[in-house]
């Protein structure tokens, strides 16, 4: 029983990892609390369903969904961060909330608010070890998300773009003053981070086979909790935070009920913000006003 919950928690955590990494890229590098992340997550998952429902093949539907989400993320960059860079961090945050509502409701206008079942391309494939059942799509998702984080780390360490992103994260002020560089790095960061959470949306829809216009809200809020718990701006902190939140959620469902999950998860978020707002591995300077 406990082994099964452990497995389920880690699988779910794998999704949160990607969302938390996405949040933490925005926050750590650009000091931008990007609330369009839930919408990008939803676009990834929901448009995959829409593509399949319209008769596209699976890979094509996923590709289409990721493309739209990536474009949406670039649009967010253009109309929030780029315009308001250097101003108070409140304005881009507010605009990104606007985008959250915009994207969700555009989908709602077109397809309605009902949750849609999405057939799994893998059928009911799973793997049994003793009593423990491991869903293959979920396992695939967990492995993919962890390898993506490794890939991200390699990218940050080895490539020119990675160095640009890191210089942005280390000294946003100086980097902002060198406007040209920021204008090239920021859209790529938005593309990268946007793809991370859109991919999480795809994986979520494949694993749990249910999509809706609001599917991003709860998941992204948990990704946000994972980011805070792990320490804002810290990628491996986001990984650990994501896995922990996944485990907490599954064990809370087991011990209490599905209805109590939010109280437990967001209670942890609230408490960690009150007791140690920098999280487990965070940079205390982040999110503070600079002179």
């Amino acid at each position: 029983m406990i082994a099964q919950q452990l497995v389920n928690g880690l699988m779910l955590g794998g999704i949160y990892v990607l969302v938390a990494v996405s949040f933490t890229l925005f926050f750590g590098c650009l000091n931008f609390l990007n609330f369009s992340v839930p919408a990008l997550f939803m676009l990834g998952g929901f448009l995959t369903w829409a593509g399949v429902a319209a008769g596209l093949s699976w890979p094509l539907a996923v590709l289409l969904a990721l493309t739209v989400a990536a474009l949406a993320s670039l649009l967010v960059e253009r109309l929030t961060w780029r315009l308001q860079r250097g101003g108070p961090p409140l304005i881009p945050l507010v605009s990104s909330l606007g985008f959250l509502i915009l994207f969700e409701n555009l989908v709602l206008v077109r397809w309605g608010s009902d949750a849609r079942a999405i057939p799994s391309p893998f059928g009911d494939a799973n793997w049994r070890i003793g009593d423990v059942v491991i869903g293959l799509p979920q396992l695939f998702g967990l492995i993919l998300s962890i390898s993506l984080v490794f890939g991200l780390q390699a990218l940050l360490k080895r490539t020119k773009l990675g160095r640009g992103i890191r210089s942005l994260a280390e000294n946003a002020e100086t980097a902002t003053m060198l406007g040209v560089e920021v204008d090239r790095v920021a859209p790529r960061l938005f593309l990268l981070a946007g793809l991370f959470c859109a991919l999480a949306g795809v994986l979520f829809s494949l694993s749990y086979q249910l999509v809706s216009p609001y599917m991003g809200d709860q998941v992204a809020l948990k990704g946000l909790s994972a980011m805070v718990l792990g320490g804002m701006g810290n990628i491996w902190g986001a990984v650990i935070g994501g896995l922990v939140i996944g485990l907490v959620e599954i064990f809370a469902v087991g011990a209490l009920s599905a209805d109590h999950v939010n109280v437990v998860v967001f209670g942890i978020l609230l408490l960690s913000l009150i007791i140690k707002p920098t999280g487990l591995f965070g940079d205390p300077a982040l999110g503070q006003q600079k002179l």
Partner: peptide
Amino acid sequence: RTRGLYLALATLAFNEV
């Protein structure tokens, strides 16, 4: 006391709790 964007996060968590 922590300032910055933490209040947005904390109040959001509070709302959900």
